[in-house]
Simulated scan of single mutants.
Amino acid sequence: MTIPLSILDLSPISAGSTARDALRNTVDLAQQAERWGYRRYWLAEHHFVRVASSAPTTLLGLLAAATESIRLGTAAVQLGHHTSASVVEAFGTIDALYPGRLDLGLGRSGHRGDQFRTAGVPPVPPAPDRGTEVRDGVVIPPVFTPGRLLDTSRLAAGLATLTLPGAQSLPYGEQVREIQALLDGTYTAGDGVELHAVPGEGADVQLWLFGSSGGESAQLAGELGLPFAANYHVSPGTILETVEAYKAAFRPSQRLPRPYLVVSADVVVAEDDARAQHLASSYGHWVYSIRSGAGAAEYLDPDTAPPLTDQQRRLVDDRVTTQFVGSPGSVAERLAALQQLTGADELVITSVTHDHRDRLDSHRLLAREWGLTHVRAA
Rank of each mutant, 00 (worst) to 15 (best):
E89G: 13
A167N: 12
T145M: 04
L43T: 00
L97T: 09
L59M: 15
S86Q: 15
H278E: 06
R154A: 01
V352W: 01
H363N: 04
T321Y: 00
G343Q: 10
P257K: 13
A377P: 04
L226T: 01
P4M: 07
R258D: 11
Q311M: 06
L10H: 10
V262G: 02
G343H: 09
R319C: 00
G80S: 12
H47W: 09
L335N: 03
S109N: 13
Q323S: 14
G73E: 02
A55Y: 10
T145I: 09
R275A: 09
I140H: 10
P146R: 04
D204A: 15
A305C: 09
R291D: 00
V348R: 04
L207S: 06
R101D: 02
L104N: 00
R117M: 06
V77F: 10
Y41N: 01
S14V: 02
T57Y: 04
A96P: 11
G113V: 02
D345P: 15
W370R: 04
R334V: 03
V87K: 13
P302F: 07
R357D: 11
F228L: 07
S86A: 14
V375S: 09
E34W: 09
E346H: 11
G326D: 02
G113F: 09
L279G: 01
Y246N: 13
T2V: 14
V234Q: 11
H374I: 06
S153Q: 15
A19L: 05
T321A: 00
D301P: 12
L224G: 06
G37A: 10
A377C: 12
W42T: 09
Y288D: 04
T373N: 14
A245D: 07
A270L: 07
F144V: 01
A297N: 13
A189Q: 13
E34C: 08
T342D: 04
E89I: 06
L256A: 11
L10E: 03
I7W: 03
E223T: 10
E271D: 15
Q340G: 07
D266Q: 06
P4T: 03
A157Y: 07
R364Y: 08
V287M: 01
V176K: 10
A22N: 05
V267H: 06
G92H: 06
